[in-house]
Design a protein around this nucleic acid. Structure first.
Lengths: 190, 190, 190, 190
DNA sequence: ACCGGCGGGACGCCCCGTTTCT
DNA sequence: AGAAACGGGGCGTCCCGCCGGT
């Protein structure tokens, strides 16, 4: 039946998931609501009962992507991975092409910087949660130093991944990735 | 005749300069040609005698911005700055807000990654020139190692600047910037 | 049972009241059903059990507003007002801004002229009732002449109020109103 | 040839003429730009080089219609018509159905009252010009009294025409019109 | 022949009136 | 009576080409 209890929540989540992927793949301003709704199996008219505006969807999709990312890392932690493994999972050739499911920061940071403050706040929250998780893998987990180390490592990984995505020569991209891994490890060993 | 020789070149350059600033400020897909042409003091119709399409303009504006950035760094080298000063000039509070005249990579990387290959090639060229210039400030200038170090440092700086731009709390931004400077220095000292 | 008998009637009346105000304030075609239902404390889905379509609501809301207007005038008659007082109550500065509760004719006449015949019939009915009430204040109440006089006086008042509402200079509006009062009195004195 | 000198002015005027008719026929908010542009033989994209927004078009179309109306009356004056003839030309059965080419005030007044101030100012200007022309037909042309008389007469005519348009019974409409003519004449004879 | 005025479609986000299923 | 979605249309703006004027 079409209108179960919880149906609306499911639909809403589906829209967010689709948007979250599209935004990362094509960018926010290049992603139209029609395309998102169509991929979610809905028509344009069904958007506004769920969200006030595209801006709201951006905020929610961003938060959702960041939460997923943090959850994935937490999952890794439970599997007992160390910081090196975390870095290698991020700076990974597969990650270059899978922007749709990849790091929202690497895919969207400059555009987030142009969003209204409410969106930036949502990003900030998600980012800090992720950094806490990342810091947990460092030598002195929980310390202020660890969080700052995590920040720098994350900055390096994001920039490196973006550069690797933006060059046209795949072997150059690979080289950049590898060098990024080494530098990240160095930043982690202190 | 009505138009001096070189008039067309000047016009073309003006368009590129304006576009270069707008793209960095608002992003490529969010910048309309009308706005660019208007800011350049021209009408829409004057665009196509100069460029095949928006894509071409993106390529040219990107190259232009990268050349400017490289030239600025070269200027710094002639002034005798060291790598620390170069890093501090890049990771600078002023740079957070001046995206219009700032680093095109920090402003546009994810979008460049979504451009056609010809644009990525143009970016790659400009990037490599910039990295050569940056490597010249490192301990063993010219070495392959220096270039790879430069790549990592640049990745870190780009990522750090973007993150600082995307958070809503200015003091957090400042903290991120500072920690980025220290990490970049560490990457440079080996 | 969940709903008192008469609950449906109450709800229906509430929708009509809200619509009646909104239509006069914003116009029919500029008033959306969602807004009306929201103001009535209901959801969109609750509309169609009460009315076939927006057109039906327009008809009912119009009749309702006209009846209110007639009732108000009847009330005035019982208070013993004369025609001059009736005119002054209508052509009143307060009436300029209170379109939401004011004369539906002044607020909606051109739009009524574009409605389907059924709506026009409803308007005609309400109008004639109002004019009968107005004619009762004239020298020869009940006579055919009185009704025609009332028609002319009402036309004058409606047009005058509309013009006063459409000019941007408040003092000009006031002047128009005053001159309208005098002209209406002259039409009444024969 | 398509791009003569003055071509743009012609196009602009054509859009205004079409809009002026549509607004009077269907109302402002019920008239879409697409329909207007299509009737003008153009596509949607051609609208914005001519006008900033629909609001601007409304203002221009309104002014244009008022000027036409004033010019028609001036033409009548040159033909030597008297005030009675002017009233009869306005309160005319043909005028009921020809709203597209008829009095913009009768067609649009309530909607004008809901427009932004700039539009109301444009209306006010056009209205005053028309009233001056109408006052020229009264006993003491040029006097302040004549202008105020003209205002009242115009209010009466506008209201009467609107009411005649809004009732569904044609014979009732005719009766209203006739009574309106007589009342207008009475207002003029003082 | 260069330049640019002007128009063409398509699509952006937003919201409408309406229907269907619970 | 509510919940949810539909399909279409609102205005605005996009990128781009067809032509005349200088």
């Amino acid at each position: 039946m079409r209108f179960d209890k919880g149906h609306k929540e499911n639909t809403r989540k589906r829209i967010i998931d689709v948007a979250s992927g599209r935004f990362r793949k094509d960018g926010v301003s290049a992603s139209g609501l029609s395309g998102i709704m169509a991929e979610a199996g809905l028509t344009n008219g069904a958007f506004y009962p769920h969200f006030d505006s595209k801006e709201t969807l951006v905020r929610e999709a961003l938060s959702s992507a960041l939460e997923d990312q943090t959850a994935q890392l937490a999952q890794g932690c439970e599997e007992g991975i160390d910081i090196e493994e975390a870095i290698r999972r991020y700076l990974n050739l597969a990650h270059i092409d899978a922007s749709e499911e990849g790091c929202p920061s690497a895919a969207l940071l400059p555009e987030i910087g142009r969003q209204p403050d409410s969106t930036k706040q949502a990003y900030e929250q998600g980012l800090l949660a992720y950094l806490r998780q990342l810091a947990a893998l460092l030598p002195k987990p929980g310390s202020r130093q660890a969080r700052q180390q995590a920040t720098a490592i994350f900055g390096l990984m994001v920039g490196t991944l973006q550069i690797a995505r933006a060059v046209s020569d795949p072997s150059l991209a690979q080289e950049i990735i590898e060098k990024g891994v080494q530098a990240a490890l160095r930043l982690a060993q202190e």
